[in-house]
Each structure stands twice: as C-alpha cells, then as structure tokens.
Design a protein around this nucleic acid. Structure first.
Length: 416
RNA sequence: GUGGAUGUAGCUCAGUUGGUUAGAGCGCUAGUUUGUGGCACUAGAGGCCGUGGGUUCGAGUCCCAUCUUCCACCCCA
C-alpha cells in the first residue's frame, strides 16, 4: 500500500461539508467587507520567499519545500500566502486599482515541519490582505473582521492579543538595547535562550523557564522604543478598538515569525487548544522590498485545520447538517429502470437531490440503502405502477405512504 | 533538528510464559413466507499482525533498524 506523505491529511466526505460551511461563512463576511478573491500559484520562484518572508526566518531556512525544476529554476511550494499575493499585486499592476485594494484567498500551504497537534506539512489558510492604506483605521477594520469570524462561527474562548513591533528604524534601536540588557547575563539563561540571542532575541522575553523569567525582570520593552509615528499609530489602534468594544490584551512578547511585519501585529489564540488560530499584522515595507512602489499593506491568515477542529468542539449541538437526498426512487424491472432514470434526471435538472439504484440491488436492499443515506422519501416503481401511472411515495421518517401520480409535477408537489 | 509514546480486518480493539488453519464488536454484502428500510437472527467477504532484518525447531508475541501516527521542544496558522 502506498500511503500519503507524512504530515498530509485526507479530508473525507464526512468532514468536507464542515469545511464548505466554514468557508462559505467566512467568504460571505469578507464580501461584506469589500474583499474579492485572488488565486495565485502553489509554487513560486524560491527567491520570492527568501526576500519576502526573510532569509533568516525558520520558515525559509529549514521548512521550505524547494527543488530545481527540469529547466534548472529553483522552485518552492508556498509556505505562506502573503508573498505570492504581494507578487501578484505588483506584477499585475493592481496598484492602479482604486485604493484601498482588498483581496482574500483560500489555499494550501507547505512547510517541512515536525507534525504535532494542529500542525501539518500541508495545511490550509484563508487570508485577507489590504493594500494602499497606512491608516490605523485599516488595522482596526482588519482586526474587526477577524474578530467577526469567531462570532459567526460561534467559537468562544478566543483571546485577541496585539502588539506593535515598530518600523525598521525603531525596532533596530530596540534590539540594540535589548541585546545590551541580555548580554550581561546571557550565560545564565537556558540553552534555548542562548541560541535565541543572536537570531531572535525578542523570543527570550517569552521563555517559560523560571530562571529566564527572573533574569528578564526589567528588560526593555519594544513599546518604549517606538518612534513617534509608530507610537501614535498603535495608540490610535488601541483607542478605536476600545471604542468599538473589541477587547484585547497587549502582549509585548508577540513577535511574528516572518520578517516582513511592521507596526501592528495581532494573534487570535484559542485558550482551550493553546494554539494560534488566526494571526496577522501590517507589512508596510514588503511591497517595496519585492520590487513594487512603496505601498503600505496589512493582512491576516487563519488556519483552516485548526478552526475546523475548534468549530466542531463548540458546535456539537447545532452542527451543520450534511446534505441529504430528498427522494430515492426504488425500482423493479427494466421498464421501471427506464422511467426512474428519466424521472431522476428531470428532478435533478430542477435542482433536487434525488437518488436511484445503479447497482442492480434487490428492492429490499434499495430500501435499506435509501434509509442509510437518510433519504426523506422513497418512491417505488414497478410494472403495475407504470400501467396505472400511479405509485406509492413513502415518508421514511413517519412510515406514511400515499399514492401519487407518476410525473415530475406530482412528485414535486408531494416532497417538501 | 531533538525527546517520548504508538502501529493486529474499513473503524474500535482482544490475542494468555513465543506453539498448529489470527479473533470480537461495529460497518459492508447477501439471506430469514420471492414488491418495502430501521429491530432481531443467519451466512459471507475482508488481515503478507506497518516494513526489513535477526534470534528460534517455531515469532502477531523476543531483539535491532526503518517508516507511520500521536505528543512535546524549536517554530508557527
């Protein structure tokens, strides 16, 4: 048996309808916020992610599916959505569209990671990006829309945390100050923290070791180092969020793992599951970095596998129902089959979910099958029915049977 | 990349100190007065016991390796 590659999942029929439900809900919400769908390639030139996501990030350094194609080009399966969308924005001159430009996407991502709870090598993200606004109002609108997702899906216990990581100028200042602070006692920190020092010193502030926690007392905080512009921006975001009644927590420890973020960053964390379901932020420098005009932008992405898992947990009672057939036409004999085939075709053309036997089962087995697939009604056709042009329609739930005329109109009238 | 657990029918799992043709429940297929589902009964199909080595007269059972799945670190959605 050939099995699927590590870290991949099949989404079977008994689950896919839940995905469709969530996707439809989210997409409707996005539409009302003025977002339109964008679809971009699964693979891109490797350089896009190296420059966009950042050469030093873990994602680029050790998690990308990269290979040379037969033409010798270095190709990478997208590990995230933003870089490709930004590339498409630049390449297709979308800057000339009325600003702001809002797009959403729903696509698979690929990261060579070790598999664990809520983490796969192929996973799916729905994301939303806005181009052409540097205003804090865009940050708030984006966070508001994200927040709505959990409301419309009836998912509680989600914590919104926000932070500002400043612009390149103030962040550099901060990192200098932080390193200076950490340097004094770096040999007393745990091993992981020591390895974090060069690459990602801000992570040390998030360490759970008691020893490191106490050493971190009095460490400088990014928020104290923000330049005036970044500071005002963040204050405005917080103020408006409060005004419109969205509760949040400021967590100076949030550092997104992708290099392109600036100013506002945010995460929606499931308290039950302990992982982040949705995350995003502003990336004012990315469009320029990838060769476009200097364009402010921001966005977020949510993990489908994670949100489906949580959705199921909280919606056991009022779970969406899978689509079930309205009618099953049971048949006996060849003539009945011909008629059933025609009826089924015509009813389907009218948009009705109707099933019939295509396995040459006995009448009894046909009824069994109709019951298993939860068909609401069963119409039985045999010689007599064809001759009399009347047939019995059975309500499978109540067991009631009534005789109706054997034509599409009368069938439609009797199956509500 | 590191550490820990796991692997027997489609699914959930039994399988006794290594011993003959590997079991159950559910599901699937068919039948139980030959034109009617759910309940009950009967029968059937379906397993190279994750894979590859080794120990042994003999391995689902013991040893080694490897892969998968799950969990944690790192990192992330």
């Amino acid at each position: 048996m050939i099995q699927k590659p590590k870290g991949t999942r099949d989404i079977l029929p008994d689950e896919s309808y839940k995905w469709q439900y969530i996707e439809a809900k989210v997409q409707e919400l996005f539409k009302n916020y003025g977002y339109k769908e964008i679809r971009v390639p699964v693979f891109e030139n490797t350089e896009l992610f190296q420059r966009g996501v950042g050469d030093t990030t873990d994602v680029v350094q050790k998690e990308m599916y990269t290979f040379d194609d037969k033409g010798g080009r270095s190709i990478t399966l997208r590990p995230e959505g933003t870089a490709g969308v930004v590339r498409a924005y630049i390449e297709n001159g979308m800057a000339s569209l009325p600003s702001p430009i809002k797009v959403w996407y729903n696509m698979a991502m690929y990261r060579y990671e070790n598999v664990q709870k809520g983490r796969l090598r192929e996973f799916h993200q729905i994301g939303a990006e806005v181009f052409g606004t540097s205003s804090y109002m865009a940050d708030v609108e984006s966070i508001t829309m994200a927040n709505e997702i959990f409301k419309i899906l009836n998912i509680p216990n989600i914590q919104l945390t926000i932070n500002s990581i400043g612009c390149p100028t103030c962040r550099a200042e901060y990192q200098k100050a932080l390193k200076k602070f950490l340097e004094k006692n770096i040999d007393q920190y745990c091993y992981t923290c020591q390895t974090r020092f060069e690459k990602n010193p801000m992570r040390i502030l998030d360490c759970k070791e008691e020893k490191c926690k106490s050493l971190n007392q009095g460490a400088p905080i990014i928020l104290d180092y923000l330049c005036d512009e970044c500071k005002t921006h963040f204050e405005n975001v917080k103020k408006l969020l409060t005004e419109i009644g969205i509760s949040y927590e400021v967590d100076p420890g949030i550092v997104r793992g992708l290099d392109y973020y600036t100013k506002t960053v945010f995460e929606f964390i499931s308290k039950e599951e302990g992982y982040t379901v949705l995350a995003g932020g502003r990336y004012d420098g990315l469009v320029k970095e990838l060769g476009g005009a200097d364009t402010p932008a921001l966005g977020f992405a949510l993990g489908m596998e994670r949100i489906v898992e949580i959705y199921e947990k909280y919606n056991k009672e009022n779970m969406v129902e899978p689509e079930i057939p309205k009618l099953y036409i049971a048949q006996i004999g060849e003539k009945a089959n011909s008629l059933a085939t025609i009826l089924v075709k015509e009813l389907r053309e009218k948009g009705i979910n109707v099933q019939k036997d295509i396995t040459e089962k006995s009448i009894k087995a046909q009824f069994k099958y109709a019951d298993k697939i939860n068909s609401k009604y069963v119409l039985t056709i045999g010689e007599d029915e064809i001759n009399n042009n009347r047939a019995k329609l059975k309500n499978m739930k109540t067991g009631e049977e009534k005789e109706i005329e054997l034509n599409v109109e009368d069938i439609l009238k009797n199956i509500d």
